[in-house]
Nucleic acid binder design. Structure first.
Lengths: 169, 169
DNA sequence: TATTGTTATACTCTATAACTATA
DNA sequence: TATAGTTATAGAGTATAACAATA
């Protein structure tokens, strides 16, 4: 499953200020962490907005598609489980799920063991939609990732793992 | 300014499938690019939602603060310049700017050379707010970045540069 | 005519509070 | 009582279309 080598080397752009360079084995000092965190957070938010601009009109929204993909890869899930994974509140996710159920892309059933819970499962149609449209939906970013250097591609792969951990914390 | 060494080495978690490993000098094949792009895009969106959950109630919203930070670091800017940097449409940014002008954190003036343009500048109060609250606003992520390994910190720094390029493309 | 900004409007995303059903 | 889900409601964020002012 993983595409990530056990070690990689990153040749990066030369530092403008050589005195600012640090050995890779040292953690960053406090002010550098603050600067990096700030830059990373803003870059993350801007990239999300950039990706939103790319959405075609005749498709599921980003939130709907993300939830459907999660159910496709990790389902069946309860509403709480799905909302935690997607990092929104249950009422927010419930609205998204309603739209997916209304278009018959997701099935909502009562859990057999606990009448309070609902099990959410992608329908055949929903699963097919994921398989058929994922590549097209990801085309904008994939086209750009393809043009990155091997080292930059490895950075993104490693960063994806870190971002998943951050989102889960 | 840069905190990034010219080269870094990344020891990552061992691959579950050794046959999937590739030399770092090779670009990923098409299907791996698609997989990486998909994972990265979803991780990016989820992290944005996670960060949104962290927002305190008594502060500027994320969009307002991001715009103010951009004007603080890169201003003065016209509305179009700011909206392009923040990756939203001019009408969307205009709404954000209206709220910042209403609270006197940003000054809106007609450009001297072109009567159609407006110049947006953070006020003294706005600049002070950025300086005083940035660290607190970034505390949630900074706390987690601080606990990452040196290699993971370097990955995030390199990824931030790539994400900025992606958002600008 | 083209560009820059603005207003009007609508839709999506998200949250909090309050409610229902079940454990 | 506590938990899982839902409904009601409101606010933030965003876009498109139409308009005004200026170049």
């Amino acid at each position: 499953m993983s595409t990530i080598p056990s070690t990689i080397t990153l040749p990066l752009e030369p530092s403008a200020d050589p005195s600012a360079e640090l050995p890779a084995s040292a953690t960053l000092p406090h002010d550098r962490v603050a600067e990096l965190s700030h830059d990373f957070r803003l870059a993350n938010a801007r990239l999300t907005r950039r990706l939103r601009q790319q959405r075609a009109n005749d498709e599921l929204t980003a939130g709907q598609f993300s939830a459907l993909c999660t159910l496709y890869s990790n389902g069946p899930l309860t509403l709480s489980e799905l909302s935690e994974h997607e990092r929104v509140t249950p009422p927010s996710m419930n609205r998204t799920v309603n739209s997916l159920v209304a278009t018959q892309l997701v099935q909502r059933e009562n859990a057999a063991d606990d009448g309070r819970k609902v099990m959410l499962t992608p329908s055949e149609e929903g699963s097919a939609l994921v398989r058929e449209t994922r590549e097209r939906r990801d085309a904008w970013i994939a086209q750009r990732v393809m043009k990155l250097s091997p080292e930059q591609q490895q950075v993104l792969a490693a960063a994806t793992l870190i971002m998943k951990e951050l989102a889960e914390s």
